[in-house]
Amino acid sequence: MRDPSRTLAAFYSIDELSRRRSPVHDRHPVALCASTAGFMIAVASFGRRDVSAILPLFLYPVLTLALADLRPAELFRRLAAVAPAILAIAALNPVFESAPVRVGPWTVAGGWLSFVSLAAKLTLTVSAAFLLVATAGMNGVAAGLRAAGIPKLIILVLQTTYRYVALLLAEVAGMSRAHELRSGPRKGVGRTLWGPMLGGLLLRSYDRAGRVHDAMGLRGFDGEFRTGKAARFGKADALYCSSWLSFFALVRFVDVTGALGRMMEGLAFGVVR
């Protein structure tokens, strides 16, 4: 099992990433949220065997990573963490969809196409979600949701849950260290301890969450997280958002990959002739 304190550090590191300055970080959170939402809708709208048509959408995470000055490793680490889940979800497709389909000169089970398509879609959406939080920050995401008309209570639940996860991880890190130091050569937590440890974890984190809530209430917290970020949606934000949304619409309604392929074919044919 991964060291919980490292998981906690990785969790907090997303907050650190969101405080950087870059052409993407400087965009209004609403512009970032709208672009991400448009991206996810575009990804989800493709058919279950569409593979080549989705490929141009990889430009979004690649370009965002570059513009936001984020290291690809930051994203790959998160993707690696969810990769087993992605593969587990997509892996059954080749089993249940055995009807053959032609892919260029090859004939493969249709399930393999939907496997690749589903894995690509999940990779894209997970990447987009990470990039949104790493550039807008959790407060920015909340501001974007608020602007989209999501009720304040739901946003409050989202933000407090996010903070509670950090708190829970901190408690897990403490308990796991205490257990490890007294468990001798034995690895992992014995089954008989699962119940008491889980119960203890919930009670401890509940207790801690109560103290954090008191600390917030004592400093005037009334249910709304105020970030103090400038709330003005400027021209650059509008341009950023509309450019991406136009690109997603283009990819969705025009077969960009096919057109590019035909163009390349034409060029090659011209050269040969």
Binding site: D15, R19, V212, A215, M216, R219, F221, R226, T227
Partner: peptide, 20 residues
């Protein structure tokens, strides 16, 4: 740690004045 719950020291110290 009960008192410092945001992502940066600045945000934590600014938390109260913003709520005011």
């Amino acid at each position: 740690d009960d008192q410092l719950f945001t992502g940066s020291v600045f945000d934590d110290v600014a938390f109260g004045p913003r709520n005011l």
